[in-house]
Simulated scan of single mutants.
Amino acid sequence: MARVIPLLVLICVAAISAWAWFRSAEPVVLPPEPTPPPPAASAPAPAAVEVPYVTGPATPDGIGKFFYGREIAKVMGHPAIGWLERTEREQEEAPSKAIAAIELAPDAVIADIGAGSGYYSFRMSEKVPRGKVVALDIQPEMLDFLRKKAAELKISNVEPHLGAIDDVKLPAASLDAALMVDAYHEFSHPQEMLASLHRALKPGGRIFLLEFRGEDPKVPIKPLHKMTEAQARLELEGAGFRFEGNLRPLPWQHLMVFERP
């Protein structure tokens, strides 16, 4: 019996120790799942900035006024209507491809800024049968030609409109889109024109900017009448527009798309 008691004591001590170990051991707790980061915010709308014009000696094709380092080109006047309406224009520039690439609702209102003879205006009118094309120019002679041509073609949804050198002279939020074909580089007041166009476009309205490719020396156009994509982005993004892309369907020109946020 004397031997049994120490054995029982030993067993009890072992049991108590085991119970105490399990009792004191803390349960394993897995670390919490990491909190996922919030979704990235969409790119903020570019803020318009005011850039001073710089003047200097004019080159033969320029006016001696510089914007973002680019000399502004001389305006092509109404005597050049024949060049705008030349029969080989389709072969050289493929305007039908540009028009096909421009997406518009049938009831959209689009302004053809620097419409000239209306070469694009009349062709664009077919895309907006329930809307209209505002054919804007600063030369009354161009608008007179437009009116006569509209009557000849019996097109009623092309509206000639006289703008100013620094203002499109259109109501706020009245446009779904704007088209500028080889004209923007000649604007003597590009900063003011872009600001007025920003006001005239509805939120989400787009600019379709066609310019001869300044990066390509094979394009047979005088340098000041061409623009690089980088230069166009610098100027339009500086005016508060968002670059959407360059469609690139044309042999000589950029077809760049910008949006009014």
Rank of each mutant, 00 (worst) to 15 (best):
K222A: 13
L8R: 09
R89A: 06
S188A: 15
V219I: 06
V29C: 04
V134Q: 03
V29A: 07
F187W: 13
I99M: 05
E85L: 06
Q231V: 12
P57L: 12
L247H: 09
F145S: 02
D144S: 03
D166G: 04
L175W: 03
W252M: 10
L153K: 06
M227C: 02
A2T: 15
F243N: 02
P220W: 03
R23A: 14
G204T: 11
P249D: 14
K222D: 14
S174M: 01
V75L: 13
A43F: 12
V257T: 02
S196D: 05
D107L: 06
R233S: 01
L179V: 04
R70A: 08
L175N: 02
K65P: 07
R23L: 11
V51P: 05
V4D: 14
L7E: 14
L143K: 00
H161N: 02
A108E: 09
E103N: 11
L197G: 04
A98I: 05
Q139G: 06
H78R: 09
P37C: 04
I138C: 01
K127R: 11
I16L: 10
L224R: 14
P6C: 08
G238E: 04
G114P: 05
S17Y: 15
H185S: 05
K202W: 13
G118Y: 00
T59L: 13
A43V: 12
T55S: 14
E235P: 01
L104R: 06
A135T: 00
V181M: 10
E259P: 02
W19E: 13
V219Q: 04
K226S: 09
V54M: 07
P37W: 06
D144H: 02
S125L: 00
I5M: 13
K127Q: 09
A58L: 05
A105Q: 15
P44D: 02
K65S: 11
E211D: 06
P6S: 08
E237L: 02
F187C: 09
S156E: 12
L146F: 01
P52L: 06
A41L: 11
L201Y: 11
G82W: 02
M124E: 05
P217H: 02
G69A: 05
F241W: 04
I72T: 09
K202F: 12
R213V: 00
P27F: 15
H78S: 10
K218F: 09
Y120N: 06
E229W: 03
D112I: 01
N246H: 08
A80D: 09
G56Q: 10
I72Q: 08
K74Q: 13
V158M: 01
A232D: 00
A183N: 08
D216P: 01
A15R: 13
A73G: 13
F122L: 01
T87D: 14
P6L: 08
H161K: 02
V128P: 03
E259C: 05
L8G: 10
G62M: 09
E237T: 04
L8S: 09
